[in-house]
């Protein structure tokens, strides 16, 4: 999954990584790609993790985890941080999700009556980045496929997702269906748990 996302990044591009699965991408990006990682709490140029000697309580990412920064990094306030996103200056944004649909809509901030995490920056992040990638496990813990015709949970954004990366493959929302771009090694379309009209084959 992580490698599929890294393949989509051009050298030198700026990248925002959401909380959860997308943070795994940070650790695997080859330094020679020269990617500038943005975290919406106000930093551009996230490098990796600190050592117990270099750790700082005031240096965290949007997941509130400790980080380190690389040479050339910058810090700024939250309005400028979201201006970078909204203004189209961040090339790629990778978010987690609970559901994503063929129309390119994403749901990732609440399950009515059960769980409310809040949208955080997700509703802003899905507008503005040139490439919006949703990265999620193909099936929920209850075995339900997360790629659907229309999301049933409250939306984070409507028609905003460009690519979907799951543990089983890479997909492009086309409006009424998902185009299969790639399948993970050994995976066949019948294992995707998606009804016939929802899938356009490779």
């Amino acid at each position: 999954m992580v490698d599929q996302v890294i393949d989509m990044l051009s050298d030198g591009s700026s990248l925002n990584l959401g909380i959860g699965i997308p943070t795994l991408v940070a650790q695997r990006i080859p330094p020679e790609k020269g990617i500038w990682i943005h975290s919406e709490n106000g930093v551009l140029g996230v490098a990796g993790r600190p050592t117990p000697q270099s750790v700082s309580a005031t240096l965290i990412n949007a997941g509130k985890e400790t980080i380190s920064v690389k040479k050339g990094a910058s810090f700024f306030d939250s309005a400028m941080s979201f201006g970078m996103i909204r203004g189209g200056h961040i090339d790629v944004c990778v978010l987690g999700g609970m559901q994503v649909d063929a129309e390119g809509s994403l749901a990732n901030w609440m399950i009515p009556g059960k769980k409310v995490t809040g949208m955080g920056g997700a509703m802003d992040l899905v507008h503005g980045a040139k490439l919006v990638i949703v990265m999620l496990t193909h099936f929920s813990k209850r075995g339900e496929v997360k790629l659907m015709h229309r999301c049933t949970l409250p939306l984070t954004g409507k028609g905003v997702v460009h690519k979907v990366v799951t543990d089983l493959g890479v997909f492009t929302p086309k409006g009424e269906s998902f185009q299969v771009e790639k399948l993970a090694p050994g995976v066949t379309e019948s294992q995707l748990g998606m009804p016939d009209g929802l899938l356009v084959s490779l």
Partner: peptide, 12 residues
């Protein structure tokens, strides 16, 4: 609940 970018821009 307010989207974070909207939250910061409304304050700004």
């Amino acid at each position: 609940l307010v989207p974070q970018g909207t939250f910061s821009e409304r304050i700004r």
